[in-house]
């Protein structure tokens, strides 16, 4: 809720609307407010992009796991305990010096929840959805990313229930880092294809 001095004692429209619907559903016995709290807690505190960062760090440091991720990402990711809603059918796409991958859902907001959590606001907004498929380089610039002109870009529009996770390239100078330190370099945006991992000295 916003503290707006011009609207004392009144709820903003969306707060009022959401509260009315929840009240009706709870009074009817259709929704348990404690279950709502548990769902919020899951995606606010438990399931988020640090899951995906752990997957990427392991792919960087364990070639056998990376191979499994290429062949059956759903099973490889589930082996780390990340599975379920909006991650039932996973595909991992690997960046190379020649090709950069980027993920979008032009039709709604499909996103791999078990590894990245809830989609950020920009991912669900029309600007990203409209432009990612047509002018990804311009979009990347808005994220501060500039790719070489010779790098090919492959955009994956999530039009079905396949969910895509971008595996960015491992930064140079990270040979001595363990999985935990590697994961700290992996940003959420780099796993959507809208960013690059941090460099070790900047982490």
């Amino acid at each position: 809720m916003h503290d707006d001095p011009h609207h004392d004692n009144s709820l903003d429209e969306m707060t009022a609307r959401a509260r009315a619907l929840e009240t009706i559903l709870v009074e009817k016995g259709l929704v348990d407010p404690a279950a709502v709290d548990a769902i919020i807690d899951t995606y606010e505190h438990k399931v988020g992009p640090r899951n995906g960062a752990a997957v990427v760090a392991r792919a960087w440091s364990d070639p056998e796991f990376a191979r499994w991720l290429r062949e059956d990402a759903t099973a490889a990711i589930a082996s780390m305990g990340f599975m379920g809603r909006q991650g039932e059918h996973m595909v991992a796409v690997f960046n190379t010096p020649d090709e950069h991958n980027m993920v979008v859902c032009t039709l709604c907001s499909c996103y791999p929840w078990p590894v990245l959590g809830l989609p950020p606001t920009w991912y669900k907004a029309p600007a990203y959805r409209a432009r990612a498929v047509r002018e990804p380089r311009a979009v990347l610039k808005e994220f501060g990313v500039s790719l070489p002109e010779t790098t090919r870009i492959h955009v994956w529009d999530s039009t079905a229930e396949i969910r895509y996770l971008v595996i960015p390239e491992r930064p140079a100078g990270t040979e001595d880092l363990d999985a935990g330190a590697l994961a700290a370099l992996v940003t959420r945006d780099s796993m959507i294809g809208c960013g690059q991992p941090r460099r070790p000295e900047a982490s």
Partner: peptide, 27 residues
Amino acid sequence: FGAVHPEDETERFHAEWEKRVLGITLA
């Protein structure tokens, strides 16, 4: 549709009501 507005990954919700809508939709 204009520019894309990146956000820090620690931003999960922008208002309390958004959380409740997520919860009641899934429930």
